[in-house]
Computed example of a mutant assay.
Amino acid sequence: MTTESVQAVPRLAADDVPVGSVSTRTLAAEWARLWTVRSTWWFLAAAAVATIGLGLVAGSSADPAESQGDAAWAVSAISAMPAQFALLALAVTAVAADYATGGIVLTLQWTPRRGVLFAARTIVVVVTTTVVAVVLGFLSALAGYLAASPTLRLPVGEGVDTLGTVAFVLAASSALAVGLGFLLRSVAAALVTVFLLILVLPLFLLAAGQPWMVDVASFLPGSGTAFLLLGGGPPGMSTEAAFAVLGAWGVGGLAAGWVRLARDDAAR
């Protein structure tokens, strides 16, 4: 009687798999996940209708006597405000919906490295919303230009500046929305918080008129957004301050979301 020796095939432990391979697969999975749910398309449709529709309205209502030679890029900044909320809703839903369905547990079993999952989901969502905002901003300006032709112009240099500002605003705001999704783990709670920070609280504090309330409003992300896109906001706010405030909220939101994901049980 002979005994055959069976050699076990060595298997790689989870920590031995190259980070690059895991990151690539996770990015592909997050990309597929984002584009295979209907809510993504509904949010994008709402953003497209808002931006392009405003562009057409602005262009068709432009007075040739008063607007002759003006740049159509202003429409991009104005239309980015309503479109922003549809895109931020997309960002929140893309992150927090997994917790409502319990899918986050399976996701973390497939990708146990939470840092990889956090980075992949953040990159996919933020890049998507930012690129979509820039494309829609361009289409909005183009729609206004064509509707008002030959009243308005499309100077390239001004377009680069305007679309660059739109890109920064959406990237920072989307980063904040993603962070809140990971932090609060609830679509409703994260959406309410985003709307409070971006729209409700800045308007309320500025309308109240109390000096300390105006000071508080100047540190909210909505004030930075309004200043960069519309030129409004708290008295005395500068472009540098608006960029700094909005960027700080984006980074801070991601940091808070990462701490919650890294330290707490995903099922809680």
Rank of each mutant, 00 (worst) to 15 (best):
residue 1 M to T: 13
residue 3 T to I: 15
residue 3 T to H: 15
residue 4 E to C: 08
residue 4 E to D: 14
residue 5 S to W: 13
residue 12 L to T: 10
residue 12 L to R: 13
residue 13 A to F: 08
residue 18 P to Q: 09
residue 19 V to L: 14
residue 19 V to I: 13
residue 24 T to I: 11
residue 29 A to P: 00
residue 31 W to V: 06
residue 32 A to R: 14
residue 32 A to S: 14
residue 33 R to W: 03
residue 35 W to P: 00
residue 38 R to S: 14
residue 40 T to P: 01
residue 42 W to N: 05
residue 44 L to P: 08
residue 44 L to R: 01
residue 51 T to Y: 10
residue 53 G to C: 06
residue 78 I to W: 05
residue 80 A to R: 08
residue 82 P to K: 00
residue 83 A to F: 04
residue 84 Q to T: 01
residue 84 Q to I: 00
residue 87 L to S: 02
residue 91 A to Q: 05
residue 98 D to P: 08
residue 98 D to N: 12
residue 101 T to Y: 03
residue 113 R to P: 02
residue 115 G to C: 03
residue 115 G to M: 04
residue 115 G to Y: 04
residue 120 A to M: 03
residue 122 T to E: 05
residue 132 V to R: 04
residue 139 L to G: 10
residue 142 L to I: 01
residue 142 L to W: 11
residue 142 L to V: 09
residue 142 L to E: 05
residue 144 G to N: 01
residue 146 L to K: 05
residue 154 L to H: 01
residue 154 L to F: 01
residue 155 P to E: 05
residue 156 V to C: 04
residue 159 G to P: 07
residue 159 G to K: 09
residue 166 V to R: 04
residue 166 V to P: 12
residue 167 A to M: 06
residue 174 S to I: 05
residue 175 A to N: 07
residue 177 A to Q: 11
residue 179 G to N: 09
residue 179 G to L: 12
residue 181 G to H: 09
residue 181 G to Y: 11
residue 182 F to L: 08
residue 187 V to K: 03
residue 187 V to N: 04
residue 187 V to C: 05
residue 190 A to I: 12
residue 191 L to P: 06
residue 196 L to V: 14
residue 203 L to P: 00
residue 206 L to K: 04
residue 206 L to W: 02
residue 208 A to S: 15
residue 209 G to L: 13
residue 216 V to P: 10
residue 217 A to D: 07
residue 223 S to N: 15
residue 228 L to K: 00
residue 229 L to I: 05
residue 229 L to F: 03
residue 230 L to Y: 08
residue 231 G to C: 01
residue 232 G to L: 09
residue 237 M to H: 03
residue 238 S to L: 06
residue 243 F to N: 00
residue 252 G to S: 13
residue 253 G to Q: 11
residue 254 L to G: 07
residue 255 A to E: 04
residue 258 W to G: 11
residue 260 R to T: 15
residue 262 A to F: 06
residue 263 R to V: 12
residue 268 R to E: 14
